[in-house]
Design a binder for these strands. Structure first.
Lengths: 205, 205
DNA sequence: CCTACCGATCGGTAGG
DNA sequence: CCTACCGATCGGTAGG
């Protein structure tokens, strides 16, 4: 299945560039010819790595998932479970978007809106990645709750929905309006929200 | 500028269909040939109404804006200013998304992610529509604050950011995961958030 | 508002 | 992994 090391390196270079293009112009806007020209190889040579455009799209999603793991998730797992890890996960996400690890902002935000109404394997792969992320945030919140750092009656699924909403909206607003305040709005919303959910018997919010 | 009434009617039919297609496949996925075939007219005949693909895209955005006004904004203005109008605006938005007024969910969510990283007139038009909507939500919240229905220190811009985040995330999750609970998550988040912001000197959240 | 066409680009293939 | 090509489709135009 895996080619020689040299092939793998070439493949990685191709897919990193593909993910950058897709974050800006979408996975449909990503064309084999353009990608080949950008990288200075022949179209059919590049095509041979993947066999079809759909396979290129799926491989690009896997590459983006790996980068997301490295940039957002892994560094948060160095923090012990609890509220601190929840905060770190959110901050890593905002930083990943703000630093433009992908030039078009969050890769998954870009391709979700593109494929959410187009049934097929690409949509399925995007939906699976989104679900994995959503479950990780939920689990991290629930850990904090079980450790007594969030109120006992915290609905982890609901709070995860709300935090993810703030992250994605900060990303979207920053991109669409070149608004540098977007990330501060997101940070404020997250801080306020997590403070409101901290274990505090007198808190009714 | 405006053609005969017959032309205007034909134009509206074309643009309504264009908005439906764009909500699912994007404004680039909207092709003049496909649109012409769908509507049973010649490609050049349809082209003549607009003169370029970019003009078709801009006209489609204007049509979608009109539908958004009719479905979301106008019916909320029948409610007197205050917290009730804020709630009505949010509920109208969720209903507009949930009823699939556009088959691909919110038209503007779909085209924002598509064009947020592609400078040009289309992005500018999408950004302007987004800003208008954002300002309307902010103003509606600030009216409620001035009427004493929201806490005096409510940051209307910040609260608008948060409510819009819940709306868009409910839309996105419903589309990507065929999740019927997405809208209830959105409604819960909005209710909880507005309750926490209601005028109440003892509330520290 | 039609038919017929333009050059460019798409995904994909043949042949070496 | 290259050159050269395939049919299909793109936005747009000529001519009537």
């Amino acid at each position: 299945m895996a080619g020689r090391p040299r092939d793998d390196r070439a493949r990685n270079v191709i897919l990193r560039r593909a993910a950058d293009i897709a974050s800006q112009d979408g996975l449909e806007g990503l064309s084999i010819g353009r990608l080949a020209t950008d990288l200075g190889v022949s179209k059919s040579g590049l095509f041979g790595y993947f066999g079809s455009k759909e396979e290129l799209q799926l491989a690009t999603i896997r590459t983006a998932t790996g980068i997301y793991l490295d940039e957002v998730i892994q560094p948060a797992l160095t923090v012990p479970p609890g509220l601190g890890r929840v905060r770190r996960l959110c901050e890593n996400w905002l930083s990943y978007s703000q630093r433009r690890v992908f030039p078009g902002g969050c890769f998954f935000f870009a391709v979700t809106a593109e494929f959410d109404a187009r049934p097929g394997r690409v949509r399925d792969a995007v939906a699976a990645a989104s679900l994995d992320w959503s479950r990780l945030v939920t689990r991290t919140i629930d850990d904090a709750r079980q450790l007594g750092e969030l109120a006992d009656d915290t609905d982890a699924d609901q709070l995860a929905f709300e935090l993810i909403a703030f992250l994605e909206t900060a990303n979207a607003r920053s991109l669409l309006h070149d608004d540098p305040n977007a990330y501060e709005r997101g940070r404020t919303a997250i801080r306020k929200h997590l403070d409101a959910a901290t274990a505090d018997p007198g808190n009714t919010a």
